[in-house]
Amino acid sequence: MEQLREVLRTRRDGIVRRWFDYIIETYPEETAAFLKSKRDPFTNPVGSTIKEGIEGIIDYIVGEGEEEVQTFLDRIIRIRAVQDFKPSEAVEFVFHLKDIVRAEVGMRLDEPEIRRQLREFDSSVDKLALLAFDIFMECREKIYELKATELKNMTYKLLERAKLLDELDKHKW
């Protein structure tokens, strides 16, 4: 995938921008403006996490990312998993990377070698999407688990007194 990688490396900023805009547009207009414009990561955690996340993913794809791609994907999906998105909506942005990359590759789409490498690239995007889906499901499960754990913690001492804790621990939450 070397030639394609080279293209992606030179077009990195454009790809990041397009992909970022695409994801941000899933939010209401006013919010999209806020998410795009505020750069401080602490006043704008959603925007900056998405930005960092997609940069990490792209660097990983072009072979420069050191950190696990899972970590970056996790950060984005973890947010979307509590933001009203259906599973399909939450991970759809991953597939869109295919279109963005094609747009950036532009004229060179005619080159057979690039086309071959694009197919390879597509399948790694598919894998990413599957991974994203797994992460989404994990996050959702975590939410349910947290609800149960809270209930348990709330009554911890009372249950301990009633010697019910052992039973509770055996129970799978």
């Binding site: 899933t26 209401p28 009203d84 759809e92 295919k98």
Partner: peptide, 30 residues
Amino acid sequence: PKPEEITKTLDYRKTPKGPWIDTKVEFRPG
């Protein structure tokens, strides 16, 4: 099919259109 073709039928754009005063409240679980 391209992702955009697949997703054409789905509404990923949640942007409420129009002024807030007309946007109806939607009780979302959670």
